[in-house]
Design a protein around this nucleic acid. Structure first.
Length: 526
RNA sequence: GGGCUUGUAGCUCAGCGGUAGAGCAGCGGCCUUUUAAGCCGUUGGUCGUGGGUUCAAAUCCCACCGAGCCCA
């Protein structure tokens, strides 16, 4: 059947060509206004030239209407045969929904009061060969739009055409990235690009993707973070450096995980955690102001954001004008679990204390699963996740992370079990991770060796040894602060997305099985 | 991994044991101010895939493949 439609459309295209008006032969069309601009600065009688996509098409014998959209707005065009001539009128009739068309004419108001263009000239600019499901629209209400999220994600162009909300979020996400760039550029940071193909993927705890480099016949990995290369640049006396780049983690897909995602990391020499906090605050403030127009951003909460049921319509105001709250990790854990510092001397003591006091997960009242924890640091981070994170609704920095889970952060001089590291949280979710970077090559080597020990014990996310990185430290690295921010998570939060796919134009999709199903004729050549 | 829901024409959906329907889109016709345009006519689906039960399955059962939500 779709072949029939295609055939008919091709016939219409042929007819347009017969009339000497091949849509595909046109290269440009003057647009004096956008649809929005036309409606806002409406001036009856003004001559305009406009182009857009046919959104509704209501021809009759010798006169008719169509609505055209241009991405941001929608305007009606009135075409009458004695206004455009027979050829143009036939071209108008040969249009289908979703075709692109250019019109010239003058602004006027219809009998029923709609601001419109009365065409004097109509020229098709592209012909659709399939039915494009745009749905219908009237008085702000929308009808029969495609609703299957799977379909819309596999054909994002249709989502962009039909779903204003999707469009808004994806545009916001793009603008966030560019606002972040402007912020760091304005501080004198240098933006760089570092290798995606690496012999050892380091800088984070994650499994990499593997691939093969034929020319050298070696296996290589896709990067999982930007960290180690950026710090080598710091060692080269470039004192402020950042990168926004795609990293790849060989993990499952979820509401908040895509195998490739965008990471911002920035490093600055001779500064401590306080400066890093200021940078994070400044970055969010800049993004809020530039993308959302205010240091106060309203974020729609969706069910699941907070432990208890929340009205889906509930909106929270996040204020980025002020410094974020600062808390200490162990103090928060002790406060929320009732355990004391003495309970955290080692893994077994801590497990015993939790068992003895029958500490349960406040979200569901169940015991906390501790069997998977191999070390005290892991246990502490688990407690952070269960007890503390849900309480961190307003922007908050949590300072002081355990040494086992922080192999790249300086030791805390006051507590050898802890490191100089913080994470930022908003609405209970992690938004950044920052260290005072280790610049002691001997310490760094020991940390990597500890990690190799964990790997030997079966932790396949443990950090690999990186001799070139150690060599860079041996050559001298200044004290420096470093920080990573997940751009997608940031965008989700600020744009009010509940799924990471809402802020990724083309999230990874499982391939479809060959059989059956609604595969539009459009090619899927990738 | 577990639970619930779901997969019917290009799109939105109805049908829920008797052999496939509506609206929109499409096609043909009428209409020179319509607007989810209208009127008349009309094309289009092996009802996700594979098994089973039954005289009979889109409809009941099982498995598989997708999707959505919730839980872990």
């Amino acid at each position: 059947m779709s072949d029939d439609i295609r055939t008919i459309r091709l016939q219409k295209l042929a007819r347009m060509r017969e009339l000497g008006r091949d849509p595909y032969a046109v290269e440009k069309w003057k647009r004096t206004d956008t649809a929005h601009g036309l409606l806002e600065n409406f001036e009856e009688g003004r001559e305009v030239s406009f182009a857009g996509r046919v959104d509704s098409h209501r021809p009759s014998g010798k006169a008719g209407f169509m609505h055209l959209t241009d991405g941001e707005g929608r305007i009606q065009v009135y075409v009458r045969q004695d206004g455009v001539g027979e050829v143009d009128y036939e071209l108008f009739r040969l249009l289908d929904i979703a075709d692109h068309v250019g019109v010239e004419g003058e602004l006027f108001v219809t009998k029923s009061g709609e601001r419109s263009i009365k065409a004097t000239h109509v020229q098709p600019l592209s012909k659709t060969l399939v039915t494009v499901p745009l749905g219908k629209e009237a008085e702000g209400k929308e009808y029969d739009k495609p609703a299957d999220p799977d379909f819309l994600l596999r054909h994002r162009h249709i989502d962009l055409l039909t779903n204003r909300d999707s469009r808004k979020k994806l545009i916001a996400r793009a603008k966030i990235t560019s606002a972040v760039r402007r912020y760091f550029d304005s501080l004198g940071y240098l933006e760089v690009e570092t290798p995606l193909l690496q012999l050892e993927a380091g800088g984070a705890a994650a499994r990499p993707f593997h691939t093969h480099y034929n020319a050298y016949d070696i296996d290589v990995k896709l990067r999982i973070s930007l960290e180690l290369y950026l710090k080598r640049i710091i060692c080269g006396e470039i004192d402020k450096v950042y990168e926004i780049g795609r990293v790849f983690r060989n993990e499952g897909v979820s509401n908040r995980h895509n195998p490739e995602f965008s990471l911002l990391e920035f490093y600055e020499s001779y500064v401590n955690l306080d400066t890093m906090m200021e940078r994070v605050e400044g970055c969010f403030r800049t993004v809020a102001t530039e993308v959302f127009g205010s240091t106060e951003v309203e974020v729609a909460l969706s069910p699941g954001d907070i432990e208890d049921e929340v009205d889906p319509q509930e909106v929270v105001k996040l204020d980025f004008s002020k410094p974020w709250r600062r808390v200490n990790l162990m103090e928060e854990i002790e406060r929320h679990t009732g355990l004391a510092a003495a309970d955290f001397v080692d893994l077994e003591t801590a497990k015993a204390a939790l068992r003895e006091r029958q500490v349960t997960n406040p979200a569901n009242g169940k015991r906390i699963l501790l069997d998977n924890e191999r070390n005290l640091g892991g246990l502490i981070e688990k407690l952070l996740e269960v007890f503390v994170e849900p309480t961190l609704q307003n922007p908050t920095f949590v300072v002081g992370y355990p040494i086992e889970t922080s192999p790249l952060a300086k030791k805390d001089p006051n507590n050898p079990r802890m490191t100089r590291r913080f994470e930022g949280y908003i609405l209970g979710k992690e938004v950044c991770n920052a260290f005072s970077e280790i610049n002691d090559p001997v310490d760094q080597r020991e940390r990597f060796e500890q990690q190799l020990g964990e790997k030997a014990k079966g932790d396949d996310e443990a950090h690999p040894m990186d001799e070139e990185f150690i060599y860079a430290l041996e050559c001298g690295m200044p004290p420096a602060g470093g920080c990573g921010i997940g751009i997608d998570r940031m965008a989700m939060m600020l744009a009010g997305a509940r799924n990471i796919r809402e802020v990724l134009l083309f999230p990874f999709m499982k391939p479809r099985p060959a059989a059956g199903a609604v595969q539009p004729v459009a090619t899927l050549s990738e």
